[in-house]
Design a protein around this nucleic acid. Structure first.
Lengths: 106, 106
DNA sequence: CTTGAATATAACCGATAGGTAATATAACTG
DNA sequence: CAGTTATATTACCTATCGGTTATATTCAAG
């Protein structure tokens, strides 16, 4: 099976996640939004399901897909040790901005 | 060219990033650590370079590879809108823990 | 129990990625 | 400049992935 990163490497799958971030959607709705064939869409949804990115609720013939946070949290955790690479820079920027006189009309 | 996620989808490349997080390394050092052929290693380094994950310093015949933060920051930024999916849960946990009596001997 | 709607699965195909072995390039060493 | 070391590039092979079309499944409606 694929890793979390493999799943996210696919642009269409990232678009699906974007769409599901707004609200749960049926397959047909996703097909329309993506401009991809129904089987193609279902295939991506299968990958997302198998890897825990989404879950499905069935409602008659419709399947409602919705986001699950776990795999994205995993990415967030993976990033953690790398954050020190830029965290200090951000801190410096923040201190700099804090030290500036308030002048909204830039 | 590949996207940031494509680059990270490759396990060997993630291992390289891990190794470079500790300190800059020469190609030979990476070859040893990865147990991969030299050309294979160079190929991955090329991808990492082309996508801004690493930069190279030359020192005679040796090339020292070191991390660059930008692409990882990009991932961090990509994650931002999704964080609300679990941020509230973490907040709740935090509030819960804060409300507990201090009792280190759990 | 047939029909139609919504979705999933299967079979197939072409492009791409990652691995290896072979070769090229570049720089120091004498 | 010949030899050696360190790395990059090329050529090639195989496996996998994403797309499509065709088909199966499931459920509601009549």
């Amino acid at each position: 099976m694929a890793t979390t990163f493999d799943v996210l490497a696919e642009p269409t799958r990232r678009r699906i996640l974007d769409l599901l971030l707004e609200r749960p959607r049926s397959v047909g709705e996703l097909v329309d939004q993506l401009g991809l064939s129904q089987p193609g869409t279902s295939k991506h949804l299968r990958v997302l399901r198998d890897n825990g990115f989404v879950r499905v609720r069935q409602d008659a013939q419709r399947r409602w897909y919705e986001l699950r946070p776990e795999p994205l949290e995993e990415i967030d955790a993976w990033l953690a040790p790398y954050r020190r690479l830029w965290a200090s820079r951000l801190d410096a920027l923040e201190r700099h901005l804090d030290s500036m006189p308030d002048d909204d009309a830039g």
